[in-house]
Design a protein around this nucleic acid. Structure first.
Lengths: 193, 193
DNA sequence: GTCTATAAATGGATAGAC
DNA sequence: GTCTATCCATTTATAGAC
């Protein structure tokens, strides 16, 4: 792998651990065994690196969604796969979702990065909306007049619960999403594994 | 108002606009017309200031919750008052919730501040849980096996929607919380104003 | 592509005079 | 309580040699 790719991969890790303003060119140079000036050669401004990270996140998210979307599974199962990925990523590997990581620095991001972030949201929100719509139509979920709002409810609950889990423990995450499932599927039963 | 109080009040504003690491002693000194050294005299370390901000937020939150809690109103009305305050604060005045602002910097906060933040969460979550429990018992809301999980769902939805509203517009906030209301109250009707 | 060297700015913090 | 002066570390960024 060439240096430029290594820089993005490493930055993606550091982004998810510390946020965009939580790592520096010095951190990158030390980890890669090169100098700061060399990092600047590949990404002159940190904003260039930031845009590359948005592209990286776009690919990361697309691949994830495609994987959750496997043909032949129920719509609820798609959401469960999303949640399982979130659990592994955040609760096990202790990394933030890269979108949440970028949101942490929202007020200091450049306009191009802000726009890129918005389009990442749209990708994620669009996917969950589609799942909600289909699940509502085939009777898996309760009927929804506004699938996008239900999708937002799901995403906010999941990401909020992941944030709080860092201070309040993992149980709160599981209980919150179990509650969401109950509301969405209108069943008193827990889901099967 | 003495200087020490002025510093906290101003810091609380800056916290809600830029996060805890998004403002500096220089910002404070310039706005107050004194030097950095004078600010340090009142709060030697920034962590001291941070703990004072947690206290300030505790008071701010307590007063808010007490206000929403007026006797004789329905439990749903209490949640509506909470939402109205969130709307005014964030969508109108363009300030973050101070708890969310502190969460933005979670990975860089000192341990005392992290503990203080957790206790702020507990205060808020406890209040909403009580409202959910009472509303469930008197038939206002759907029956809940886990009021705390429902409270968490409400808080995460509200705060997530406020975050996203900064990029995606206010409609997403209103639609999301309308969807939550529908799930909680099991009615197809919109709420009266 | 990588290096040395350096610039310019910022942020937190302290010593000591008034 | 406030000031001047200063320190030290960090971060982003550039010039120019190899």
């Amino acid at each position: 792998m060439n240096t430029k790719q290594q820089i993005v991969e490493l930055s993606a890790d550091l982004l998810r651990e510390h946020g965009f303003h939580g790592f520096s060119y010095l951190d990158l140079s030390r980890a890669l065994g090169i100098t700061k000036a060399s990092v600047h050669h590949h990404y002159p401004k940190k904003d260039d690196l930031g845009l590359a990270l948005c592209e990286w996140t776009h690919d990361w998210l697309s691949q994830g969604l495609e994987h959750f979307d496997t043909k032949g599974t129920s719509n609820w199962n798609k959401l469960e796969r999303y949640l399982q990925a979130a659990i592994k990523h955040t609760l096990t590997d202790h990394k933030m979702c890269p979108i949440s990581a970028l949101y942490s620095d929202l007020n200091k991001l450049s306009e191009p990065m802000t726009l890129a972030l918005k389009s990442l949201d749209d990708l994620e929100l669009g996917w969950v909306t589609k799942v909600m719509t289909e699940g509502g139509q085939n009777g898996e979920f309760i009927a929804q007049e506004d699938s996008k709002a239900m999708a937002a409810l799901f995403i906010f609950s999941c990401k909020g619960a992941l944030y709080y889990a860092r201070l309040h423990g993992q149980d709160l995450f599981h209980q919150t999403m179990k509650q969401f499932e109950h509301l969405l599927r209108q069943t008193g039963e827990n889901h099967e594994h």
